[in-house]
Design a binder for these strands. Structure first.
Lengths: 194, 194
DNA sequence: TTTGTTTTAGAGCGATTGTTCTAAAATGAA
DNA sequence: TTCATTTTAGAACAATCGCTCTAAAACAAA
Protein backbone atom coordinates (compact mmCIF):
# COMPACT_ATOMS: atom_id res chain seq x y z
CA UNK A 1 0.00 0.00 0.00
CA UNK A 2 2.68 2.50 0.88
CA UNK A 3 4.69 4.49 -1.52
CA UNK A 4 8.05 2.86 -2.12
CA UNK A 5 11.30 4.60 -1.30
CA UNK A 6 12.87 6.34 -4.24
CA UNK A 7 16.44 5.77 -3.12
CA UNK A 8 18.57 2.92 -1.90
CA UNK A 9 19.35 3.42 1.77
CA UNK A 10 22.63 1.53 1.47
CA UNK A 11 23.72 3.72 -1.42
CA UNK A 12 22.82 6.91 0.42
CA UNK A 13 24.77 5.73 3.44
CA UNK A 14 27.79 5.06 1.27
CA UNK A 15 27.58 8.57 -0.13
CA UNK A 16 27.21 10.08 3.33
CA UNK A 17 30.29 8.12 4.35
CA UNK A 18 32.28 9.72 1.54
CA UNK A 19 31.24 13.24 2.51
CA UNK A 20 31.82 12.81 6.27
CA UNK A 21 35.12 11.10 5.49
CA UNK A 22 36.24 14.07 3.43
CA UNK A 23 34.92 16.94 5.54
CA UNK A 24 34.51 15.50 9.02
CA UNK A 25 31.53 15.87 11.33
CA UNK A 26 31.45 19.56 12.14
CA UNK A 27 32.23 20.91 8.69
CA UNK A 28 29.50 18.81 7.06
CA UNK A 29 26.16 20.58 7.34
CA UNK A 30 22.74 19.13 6.70
CA UNK A 31 22.55 21.33 3.62
CA UNK A 32 25.83 19.83 2.39
CA UNK A 33 24.32 16.39 2.86
CA UNK A 34 21.08 17.29 1.08
CA UNK A 35 23.03 18.59 -1.93
CA UNK A 36 25.50 15.71 -1.99
CA UNK A 37 23.12 12.86 -1.28
CA UNK A 38 20.45 14.16 -3.63
CA UNK A 39 17.61 13.50 -1.22
CA UNK A 40 15.54 15.93 0.78
CA UNK A 41 15.72 17.13 4.31
CA UNK A 42 12.71 15.10 5.38
CA UNK A 43 14.05 11.94 3.76
CA UNK A 44 17.21 12.18 5.79
CA UNK A 45 15.39 12.64 9.07
CA UNK A 46 12.85 9.98 8.16
CA UNK A 47 15.43 7.38 7.22
CA UNK A 48 18.08 8.04 9.84
CA UNK A 49 16.27 8.71 13.07
CA UNK A 50 18.62 10.49 15.37
CA UNK A 51 19.57 13.16 12.88
CA UNK A 52 23.03 14.16 11.83
CA UNK A 53 24.76 12.38 14.69
CA UNK A 54 23.12 9.03 13.95
CA UNK A 55 23.85 9.37 10.24
CA UNK A 56 27.48 10.05 11.04
CA UNK A 57 27.69 7.06 13.35
CA UNK A 58 26.25 4.74 10.74
CA UNK A 59 28.50 6.17 8.03
CA UNK A 60 31.48 5.70 10.31
CA UNK A 61 30.57 2.13 11.17
CA UNK A 62 30.17 1.38 7.48
CA UNK A 63 33.69 2.62 6.82
CA UNK A 64 35.12 0.86 9.82
CA UNK A 65 33.54 -2.50 9.03
CA UNK A 66 34.32 -2.53 5.31
CA UNK A 67 37.86 -1.32 6.00
CA UNK A 68 38.41 -4.10 8.52
CA UNK A 69 36.89 -6.70 6.26
CA UNK A 70 39.01 -5.58 3.31
CA UNK A 71 42.19 -5.60 5.34
CA UNK A 72 41.43 -9.00 6.82
CA UNK A 73 40.66 -10.49 3.42
CA UNK A 74 43.83 -9.07 1.94
CA UNK A 75 46.17 -10.32 4.65
CA UNK A 76 44.60 -13.76 4.67
CA UNK A 77 45.14 -14.04 0.92
CA UNK A 78 48.90 -13.52 1.30
CA UNK A 79 51.25 -16.47 1.76
CA UNK A 80 54.53 -14.58 2.05
CA UNK A 81 54.71 -12.54 5.23
CA UNK A 82 57.12 -9.84 4.12
CA UNK A 83 55.58 -9.42 0.70
CA UNK A 84 52.10 -9.42 2.21
CA UNK A 85 52.92 -6.63 4.64
CA UNK A 86 54.79 -4.75 1.92
CA UNK A 87 51.76 -4.83 -0.34
CA UNK A 88 49.36 -3.94 2.45
CA UNK A 89 51.34 -0.80 3.25
CA UNK A 90 51.90 -0.07 -0.44
CA UNK A 91 48.15 -0.02 -0.98
CA UNK A 92 47.65 2.52 1.79
CA UNK A 93 50.47 4.67 0.48
CA UNK A 94 49.10 4.52 -3.04
CA UNK A 95 45.54 5.27 -2.02
CA UNK A 96 46.59 8.33 -0.04
CA UNK A 97 48.83 9.50 -2.84
CA UNK A 98 46.21 9.46 -5.58
CA UNK A 99 43.32 10.80 -3.50
CA UNK A 100 43.02 14.45 -4.41
CA UNK A 101 40.67 15.02 -1.50
CA UNK A 102 43.39 13.95 0.95
CA UNK A 103 40.79 12.07 2.95
CA UNK A 104 43.33 9.54 4.29
CA UNK A 105 41.74 7.31 6.96
CA UNK A 106 38.24 7.99 8.30
CA UNK A 107 39.09 6.23 11.56
CA UNK A 108 42.15 8.42 12.11
CA UNK A 109 40.16 11.52 11.20
CA UNK A 110 37.40 10.64 13.61
CA UNK A 111 39.86 9.79 16.37
CA UNK A 112 41.29 13.26 16.07
CA UNK A 113 38.01 15.12 15.72
CA UNK A 114 35.70 13.34 18.11
CA UNK A 115 37.55 11.20 20.66
CA UNK A 116 37.81 13.99 23.23
CA UNK A 117 34.02 14.27 23.14
CA UNK A 118 32.22 11.13 22.07
CA UNK A 119 32.56 8.01 24.19
CA UNK A 120 30.63 5.69 21.92
CA UNK A 121 32.97 6.38 19.04
CA UNK A 122 35.88 6.03 21.42
CA UNK A 123 34.93 2.41 21.99
CA UNK A 124 34.40 1.81 18.31
CA UNK A 125 37.87 3.14 17.58
CA UNK A 126 39.44 1.03 20.31
CA UNK A 127 37.82 -2.02 18.77
CA UNK A 128 39.20 -1.04 15.39
CA UNK A 129 42.69 -0.92 16.84
CA UNK A 130 42.29 -4.28 18.56
CA UNK A 131 41.08 -5.97 15.40
CA UNK A 132 43.86 -4.55 13.22
CA UNK A 133 46.53 -5.45 15.78
CA UNK A 134 45.01 -8.92 16.02
CA UNK A 135 45.14 -9.33 12.25
CA UNK A 136 48.79 -8.29 12.20
CA UNK A 137 49.50 -10.71 15.03
CA UNK A 138 47.84 -13.68 13.37
CA UNK A 139 49.57 -12.90 10.12
CA UNK A 140 52.96 -12.75 11.83
CA UNK A 141 52.26 -15.96 13.71
CA UNK A 142 51.49 -17.67 10.43
CA UNK A 143 54.94 -16.50 9.34
CA UNK A 144 56.54 -18.06 12.39
CA UNK A 145 54.77 -21.34 11.78
CA UNK A 146 55.90 -21.41 8.16
CA UNK A 147 59.46 -20.64 9.17
CA UNK A 148 59.55 -17.18 7.59
CA UNK A 149 60.05 -15.45 10.94
CA UNK A 150 62.23 -16.44 13.87
CA UNK A 151 60.46 -17.77 16.93
CA UNK A 152 62.42 -15.29 19.04
CA UNK A 153 60.47 -12.28 17.80
CA UNK A 154 58.05 -10.49 20.09
CA UNK A 155 54.95 -10.73 17.91
CA UNK A 156 52.74 -8.76 20.27
CA UNK A 157 54.93 -5.71 20.17
CA UNK A 158 55.58 -6.09 16.46
CA UNK A 159 51.87 -6.26 15.64
CA UNK A 160 51.23 -3.26 17.82
CA UNK A 161 54.08 -1.36 16.21
CA UNK A 162 52.82 -2.06 12.71
CA UNK A 163 49.49 -0.59 13.72
CA UNK A 164 51.17 2.56 14.99
CA UNK A 165 53.23 2.76 11.82
CA UNK A 166 50.03 2.44 9.83
CA UNK A 167 48.48 5.34 11.71
CA UNK A 168 51.60 7.39 11.10
CA UNK A 169 51.44 6.65 7.39
CA UNK A 170 47.84 7.87 7.30
CA UNK A 171 48.74 11.17 8.94
CA UNK A 172 51.74 11.55 6.67
CA UNK A 173 49.48 10.69 3.73
CA UNK A 174 47.61 13.94 4.30
CA UNK A 175 50.64 15.80 2.93
CA UNK A 176 50.94 13.34 0.04
CA UNK A 177 54.65 12.55 0.26
CA UNK A 178 56.64 10.76 -2.44
CA UNK A 179 55.48 7.11 -2.47
CA UNK A 180 59.06 5.93 -3.01
CA UNK A 181 60.13 7.69 0.15
CA UNK A 182 57.26 6.06 2.03
CA UNK A 183 58.11 2.63 0.68
CA UNK A 184 61.64 3.11 1.96
CA UNK A 185 60.19 3.40 5.42
CA UNK A 186 58.16 0.26 4.86
CA UNK A 187 61.31 -1.69 3.99
CA UNK A 188 62.94 -0.52 7.18
CA UNK A 189 59.90 -1.64 9.16
CA UNK A 190 60.05 -5.03 7.45
CA UNK A 191 63.71 -5.40 8.40
CA UNK A 192 62.49 -5.77 11.99
CA UNK A 193 61.42 -9.28 10.98
CA UNK A 194 64.97 -10.35 10.04
CA UNK B 1 46.98 59.53 25.63
CA UNK B 2 45.32 56.28 24.75
CA UNK B 3 43.82 53.83 27.14
CA UNK B 4 46.18 50.91 27.72
CA UNK B 5 45.21 47.35 26.93
CA UNK B 6 43.92 45.41 29.91
CA UNK B 7 45.24 42.06 28.75
CA UNK B 8 48.51 40.58 27.55
CA UNK B 9 48.20 39.71 23.89
CA UNK B 10 50.76 36.92 24.22
CA UNK B 11 48.87 35.40 27.09
CA UNK B 12 45.55 35.54 25.24
CA UNK B 13 47.16 33.88 22.25
CA UNK B 14 48.47 31.09 24.45
CA UNK B 15 44.99 30.53 25.84
CA UNK B 16 43.46 30.53 22.37
CA UNK B 17 46.06 27.96 21.39
CA UNK B 18 44.93 25.68 24.19
CA UNK B 19 41.26 25.90 23.19
CA UNK B 20 41.83 25.42 19.46
CA UNK B 21 44.22 22.60 20.25
CA UNK B 22 41.57 20.85 22.31
CA UNK B 23 38.49 21.49 20.18
CA UNK B 24 39.79 22.18 16.70
CA UNK B 25 38.80 25.03 14.39
CA UNK B 26 35.17 24.28 13.55
CA UNK B 27 34.03 23.23 17.00
CA UNK B 28 35.46 26.35 18.63
CA UNK B 29 32.99 29.21 18.35
CA UNK B 30 33.64 32.88 18.98
CA UNK B 31 31.43 32.57 22.04
CA UNK B 32 33.63 29.72 23.29
CA UNK B 33 36.64 31.96 22.81
CA UNK B 34 35.04 34.92 24.57
CA UNK B 35 34.20 32.75 27.59
CA UNK B 36 37.57 30.99 27.68
CA UNK B 37 39.81 33.95 26.95
CA UNK B 38 37.94 36.27 29.29
CA UNK B 39 37.99 39.19 26.87
CA UNK B 40 35.16 40.65 24.87
CA UNK B 41 34.06 40.19 21.33
CA UNK B 42 35.35 43.60 20.26
CA UNK B 43 38.72 42.99 21.89
CA UNK B 44 39.21 39.84 19.86
CA UNK B 45 38.36 41.50 16.58
CA UNK B 46 40.38 44.57 17.47
CA UNK B 47 43.49 42.64 18.42
CA UNK B 48 43.43 39.89 15.82
CA UNK B 49 42.38 41.51 12.58
CA UNK B 50 41.15 38.79 10.30
CA UNK B 51 38.78 37.28 12.82
CA UNK B 52 38.58 33.69 13.86
CA UNK B 53 40.70 32.38 11.02
CA UNK B 54 43.59 34.72 11.75
CA UNK B 55 43.42 33.96 15.46
CA UNK B 56 43.56 30.26 14.67
CA UNK B 57 46.53 30.69 12.36
CA UNK B 58 48.45 32.64 14.97
CA UNK B 59 47.55 30.14 17.68
CA UNK B 60 48.67 27.32 15.43
CA UNK B 61 51.98 28.99 14.57
CA UNK B 62 52.60 29.57 18.26
CA UNK B 63 52.16 25.86 18.95
CA UNK B 64 54.19 24.85 15.93
CA UNK B 65 57.10 27.13 16.75
CA UNK B 66 57.31 26.39 20.46
CA UNK B 67 56.93 22.68 19.81
CA UNK B 68 59.75 22.75 17.29
CA UNK B 69 61.95 24.80 19.56
CA UNK B 70 61.31 22.51 22.50
CA UNK B 71 62.05 19.40 20.49
CA UNK B 72 65.20 20.89 19.04
CA UNK B 73 66.47 21.98 22.44
CA UNK B 74 65.78 18.58 23.92
CA UNK B 75 67.53 16.57 21.23
CA UNK B 76 70.53 18.86 21.23
CA UNK B 77 70.91 18.41 24.97
CA UNK B 78 71.25 14.64 24.62
CA UNK B 79 74.63 13.02 24.19
CA UNK B 80 73.55 9.39 23.90
CA UNK B 81 71.60 8.73 20.71
CA UNK B 82 69.51 5.80 21.79
CA UNK B 83 68.76 7.22 25.21
CA UNK B 84 67.97 10.60 23.69
CA UNK B 85 65.45 9.16 21.26
CA UNK B 86 64.03 6.95 23.97
CA UNK B 87 63.42 9.92 26.22
CA UNK B 88 62.02 12.04 23.43
CA UNK B 89 59.40 9.43 22.62
CA UNK B 90 58.81 8.74 26.30
CA UNK B 91 57.94 12.36 26.83
CA UNK B 92 55.34 12.29 24.04
CA UNK B 93 53.88 9.07 25.36
CA UNK B 94 53.71 10.45 28.88
CA UNK B 95 52.20 13.75 27.82
CA UNK B 96 49.44 12.04 25.84
CA UNK B 97 48.80 9.59 28.64
CA UNK B 98 48.24 12.16 31.36
CA UNK B 99 46.29 14.68 29.29
CA UNK B 100 42.66 14.17 30.20
CA UNK B 101 41.60 16.33 27.27
CA UNK B 102 43.26 13.90 24.83
CA UNK B 103 44.53 16.85 22.81
CA UNK B 104 47.56 14.92 21.50
CA UNK B 105 49.39 16.97 18.83
CA UNK B 106 47.96 20.23 17.48
CA UNK B 107 49.88 19.78 14.22
CA UNK B 108 48.44 16.32 13.66
CA UNK B 109 44.96 17.55 14.56
CA UNK B 110 45.20 20.45 12.15
CA UNK B 111 46.59 18.22 9.40
CA UNK B 112 43.53 16.05 9.71
CA UNK B 113 41.00 18.83 10.03
CA UNK B 114 42.22 21.48 7.63
CA UNK B 115 44.73 20.15 5.09
CA UNK B 116 42.07 19.25 2.53
CA UNK B 117 40.94 22.87 2.59
CA UNK B 118 43.60 25.33 3.66
CA UNK B 119 46.74 25.68 1.56
CA UNK B 120 48.54 28.09 3.80
CA UNK B 121 48.39 25.67 6.71
CA UNK B 122 49.38 22.90 4.34
CA UNK B 123 52.69 24.63 3.78
CA UNK B 124 53.14 25.30 7.45
CA UNK B 125 52.63 21.64 8.21
CA UNK B 126 55.06 20.56 5.49
CA UNK B 127 57.65 22.82 7.04
CA UNK B 128 57.00 21.28 10.42
CA UNK B 129 57.66 17.84 8.99
CA UNK B 130 60.84 18.98 7.28
CA UNK B 131 62.22 20.53 10.44
CA UNK B 132 61.43 17.51 12.61
CA UNK B 133 62.91 15.11 10.08
CA UNK B 134 65.96 17.36 9.85
CA UNK B 135 66.38 17.35 13.62
CA UNK B 136 66.17 13.56 13.70
CA UNK B 137 68.70 13.40 10.86
CA UNK B 138 71.22 15.68 12.54
CA UNK B 139 70.83 13.82 15.79
CA UNK B 140 71.44 10.48 14.11
CA UNK B 141 74.42 11.87 12.23
CA UNK B 142 75.91 13.01 15.52
CA UNK B 143 75.53 9.38 16.61
CA UNK B 144 77.43 8.17 13.58
CA UNK B 145 80.22 10.63 14.22
CA UNK B 146 80.53 9.55 17.83
CA UNK B 147 80.56 5.90 16.81
CA UNK B 148 77.21 5.05 18.39
CA UNK B 149 75.64 4.18 15.03
CA UNK B 150 77.12 2.25 12.13
CA UNK B 151 78.04 4.27 9.06
CA UNK B 152 76.09 1.81 6.95
CA UNK B 153 72.71 3.04 8.17
CA UNK B 154 70.42 4.99 5.85
CA UNK B 155 69.97 8.06 8.03
CA UNK B 156 67.58 9.77 5.62
CA UNK B 157 65.08 6.96 5.73
CA UNK B 158 65.57 6.43 9.45
CA UNK B 159 64.92 10.08 10.24
CA UNK B 160 61.85 10.02 8.06
CA UNK B 161 60.62 6.85 9.68
CA UNK B 162 61.02 8.23 13.17
CA UNK B 163 58.85 11.15 12.13
CA UNK B 164 56.15 8.80 10.86
CA UNK B 165 56.40 6.77 14.04
CA UNK B 166 56.00 9.95 16.02
CA UNK B 167 52.82 10.82 14.13
CA UNK B 168 51.53 7.31 14.73
CA UNK B 169 52.20 7.65 18.44
CA UNK B 170 50.22 10.88 18.52
CA UNK B 171 47.20 9.26 16.85
CA UNK B 172 47.48 6.27 19.15
CA UNK B 173 47.80 8.68 22.06
CA UNK B 174 44.20 9.76 21.48
CA UNK B 175 43.08 6.41 22.86
CA UNK B 176 45.52 6.67 25.76
CA UNK B 177 47.13 3.24 25.56
CA UNK B 178 49.30 1.72 28.28
CA UNK B 179 52.61 3.64 28.33
CA UNK B 180 54.54 0.42 28.88
CA UNK B 181 53.09 -1.01 25.71
CA UNK B 182 54.05 2.13 23.83
CA UNK B 183 57.58 2.06 25.21
CA UNK B 184 57.91 -1.50 23.93
CA UNK B 185 57.31 -0.15 20.47
CA UNK B 186 59.91 2.53 21.04
CA UNK B 187 62.50 -0.09 21.93
CA UNK B 188 61.74 -1.95 18.74
CA UNK B 189 62.17 1.24 16.76
CA UNK B 190 65.49 1.86 18.47
CA UNK B 191 66.67 -1.62 17.53
CA UNK B 192 66.77 -0.35 13.96
CA UNK B 193 69.95 1.48 14.96
CA UNK B 194 71.79 -1.74 15.91
C1' DT C 1 -10.47 4.52 -9.64
C1' DT C 2 -10.58 4.88 -4.92
C1' DT C 3 -8.41 4.37 -0.68
C1' DG C 4 -4.74 4.28 2.65
C1' DT C 5 -0.13 4.98 3.60
C1' DT C 6 4.46 6.92 3.04
C1' DT C 7 7.64 9.80 0.94
C1' DT C 8 8.60 14.07 -0.54
C1' DA C 9 9.59 19.20 -1.21
C1' DG C 10 9.89 23.18 1.00
C1' DA C 11 8.46 26.59 4.42
C1' DG C 12 9.61 27.70 8.87
C1' DC C 13 11.38 26.91 13.78
C1' DG C 14 14.47 28.88 17.48
C1' DA C 15 19.23 28.87 18.29
C1' DT C 16 23.74 29.88 17.02
C1' DT C 17 27.25 31.18 13.61
C1' DG C 18 31.03 34.96 12.63
C1' DT C 19 31.14 39.69 12.35
C1' DT C 20 30.12 44.80 12.68
C1' DC C 21 28.54 48.70 15.07
C1' DT C 22 27.49 51.94 18.73
C1' DA C 23 28.00 54.19 22.73
C1' DA C 24 29.87 54.29 27.22
C1' DA C 25 33.93 53.51 30.22
C1' DA C 26 38.81 54.02 30.93
C1' DT C 27 43.17 56.00 30.57
C1' DG C 28 47.48 59.06 29.60
C1' DA C 29 48.93 63.68 28.35
C1' DA C 30 48.06 68.51 28.74
C1' DT D 1 40.39 68.67 35.22
C1' DT D 2 39.98 68.53 30.45
C1' DC D 3 40.73 66.44 26.23
C1' DA D 4 41.91 63.04 22.93
C1' DT D 5 42.16 58.38 22.08
C1' DT D 6 41.38 53.50 22.74
C1' DT D 7 39.31 49.74 24.76
C1' DT D 8 35.39 47.84 26.18
C1' DA D 9 30.57 45.64 26.79
C1' DG D 10 26.79 44.51 24.58
C1' DA D 11 23.25 45.25 21.05
C1' DA D 12 22.42 44.00 16.49
C1' DC D 13 23.48 41.98 11.84
C1' DA D 14 22.51 38.65 8.12
C1' DA D 15 23.53 33.99 7.42
C1' DT D 16 23.50 29.48 8.67
C1' DC D 17 22.94 25.74 12.03
C1' DG D 18 20.17 21.21 13.02
C1' DC D 19 15.65 20.07 13.02
C1' DT D 20 10.28 19.95 12.76
C1' DC D 21 6.19 20.54 10.48
C1' DT D 22 2.74 20.79 6.86
C1' DA D 23 0.65 19.72 2.84
C1' DA D 24 0.97 17.88 -1.60
C1' DA D 25 2.75 14.10 -4.52
C1' DA D 26 3.47 9.20 -5.31
C1' DC D 27 2.60 4.72 -5.04
C1' DA D 28 0.45 -0.27 -3.75
C1' DA D 29 -3.57 -2.67 -2.79
C1' DA D 30 -8.50 -2.99 -3.29
Amino acid sequence: MPRTKQFDEEEILKKAMMLFWKKGFYDTSIKDLIDFLGISNASIYNTFKGGKEELFKRAFQLYRDSNLQGFKAFLESQADVRQGLRMAFAKIIHDDHVDEDCKACFVVNTSIELIPINNELHNSINQYKEVIVGLFYNFLQKGVQSGQISEQKDLDTLANLYYTFMMGLRVDGKTQPDPKESMGKVELMLSLLD
